[in-house]
């Protein structure tokens, strides 16, 4: 599944990123890598969401969330 399909207040683990290189490196510099745990804090109907990664909060747009694949934390 993609992060975009994630639900509020649930945690996921990143399994892959499929974005332009510069953006992908930027996300990685922020600590969003394969294997990183992400908690979705809240979501808007149109798709921007607030996530918590490594103790920091980020707002990310739909296009980014759709290109991050994750699995549920429990599923792992």
């Amino acid at each position: 599944m993609t992060l975009h399909e994630g639900e509020s207040e649930k945690s996921y683990v990143v399994t892959g990123l499929a974005l332009p290189v510069a953006l992908e490196r930027r996300l990685e510099a922020l600590g969003i890598l394969e294997g990183t745990a992400i908690t979705v804090l809240r979501k808007k109907p149109r798709g921007a969401m607030v996530i918590s990664v490594r103790g920091a909060r980020f707002a990310i747009g739909r296009q980014i969330a759709e290109n991050i694949t994750v699995i549920g934390k429990e599923a792992r």
């Binding site: 953006l23 996300l27 909060r57 707002a59 990310i60 747009g61 739909r62 296009q63 980014i64």
Partner: peptide, 11 residues
Amino acid sequence: QQQASLLIELP
């Protein structure tokens, strides 16, 4: 091309 997406830290 595709529009840029939001990415910002919420302090």
